[in-house]
Design a protein around this nucleic acid. Structure first.
Lengths: 261, 261
DNA sequence: GATCTGCACTGGTCTGACCAGTAGACTTTT
DNA sequence: AAAAGTCTACTGGTCAGACCAGTGCAGATC
């Protein structure tokens, strides 16, 4: 794996393409996905019933169903038994992304240090953007989240983590960049699923929370001042400070490469 | 969408969980995935044949097949007709992640400016990392790609774009970060699919290519020197210079926010 | 107009069948 | 004995047809 994560590139000319028998259900999946990509099928709209699809595609129901199961597992449609309107086209969700990232993380395809580097990248960029683009309302949200964190320091790791979540989410929203927002959310989730219990059971948990709170306040101050570069720097150091100790020393070079000026 | 991109958050206590009828094929998928997660099934090993699975799971073949189709579409297994050894457990791949990322990148509401901001973020980070972590062999790859770009300047946009692709891919690999590599590949692809023809038909195409080549050489020099921050800066300016004119002026603020020091 | 009831239809599952293709055992040829 | 070809049991891909429990809605009832 990982030899060539980005596949779809123009063939370089000579040589043959590997062939693979394309199964019927795959063509159905393709057709539906393309129709969605072209905007002919929009979220909320319905697909014809399975039996109707059988007629339209000219296959058996088993084949249509295999296609629907694939689409369903990819979060593209949802079938409900008895619904006379047929399978529903779903709006995009991050469920599939999260699932795949978890899978990779569990399979050692994605180390903690890689995830943290990504998180630092995403978060610091979000902060840079938020510092410039945030509205007053969004600033108020961040204030509220920080306040929540303050009270949560004494309330244990669970509530602190929740408040922390709200803060980062508010910033991601303020960045105005859906891609960054989504990726940041997914990566954050994955990181937490890997080490949240280690953090929760740290002996000096409260001290860590206080320190993290301080960092967050610093970040927020920079955002309020509209100082993007400073907000980015502060968030980088905040994450490094909070998580670096969980990364094997040999792999910390990558994290530190992001801190250099 | 985007209301709550990061779904799976800790439930806040009170309240009921939404219920959903679990279909038989989903249980089969679960069981197989868990067996793999527990390490009982390792890549390269084989699943029993469909008819054997029918016996073990006590369902019909149609149900077993739906499960296999889902597993297959997630890149977990692969079935080949006629293979007496049964479906193969596959090693982990980034294919699933790529697929989901692509879906995200295509989701409507994602403007070119958002994609470019993401690209700048990803590429500059990859460059910072590559400057520190690259091996000599990887450096040689980049040299080769640059050389290819040089000769391609006179060969039209198509070959230039290909060489450019190879260069960025080499850097992404050298960053040592699978996530960044995957995301960068997808975003790059998506950006190109949006505006490659505009670029190809630009009147001053060759001048643009020459200029871009110069930027790339600058980046590579920084990487060779091991100067991460400079490599990051250079790539940011390179991308901005190359693409910013395609972004409506009102949306350029985000791009420029990444350039500030 | 609100409520109830029945029905047509949906998706989930099963059974059983046929086909083309494959791997490995077996036979033949050298 | 080694190489070549043949055979066969079994595989996955696909189909047809069936049954069931559930759903939404039209029409009947109040």
């Amino acid at each position: 794996m990982a030899d060539n994560p980005s596949a779809s590139h123009t063939p370089t000319g000579r040589g043959f393409e590997p062939v693979r028998s394309v199964r019927l259900y795959e063509r159905i999946v393709e057709q539906v996905e393309e129709a969605i990509a072209r905007g002919e099928l929009r979220p909320g709209q319905r697909l014809p019933s399975e039996r109707e699809l059988v007629v339209q595609f000219g296959t058996s129901r088993a084949t249509v169903r295999e296609a629907l199961r694939v689409l369903e597992s990819n979060g593209v449609v949802r079938s409900r038994p008895g619904d006379p309107n047929g399978p529903e086209i779903l709006p995009f969700t991050t469920g599939g992304l999260t699932k795949q990232m978890r899978r990779l993380a569990r399979a050692d395809g994605l180390s903690l240090s890689q995830l943290l580097v990504s998180r630092m990248m995403l978060d610091s960029t979000a902060n840079r953007l938020a510092a410039v683009l945030r509205t007053e309302a969004q600033l108020a949200e961040m204030d509220a989240a920080i306040e929540q964190m303050r009270t949560a320091v004494d309330g244990g790791y669970g509530s602190f983590s929740e408040a922390d979540f709200a803060f980062h989410e508010a910033i991601a929203r303020a960045s105005g960049n859906t891609l960054i927002q989504v990726c940041n959310g997914v990566v954050r989730d994955t990181v937490l699923s890997l080490i949240s219990d280690k953090i929760a059971h740290a002996r000096n948990a409260q001290a860590l929370m206080k320190r993290s709170l301080g960092h967050h306040e610093q970040v927020l101050a920079a955002i309020r001042a509209g100082d993007g570069p400073e907000a980015g720097r502060a968030s980088l150091h905040s994450l490094y400070d909070y998580y670096a100790s969980y990364v094997p020393k040999a792999e910390r070079a990558a994290l530190e490469a992001l801190l250099d000026e």
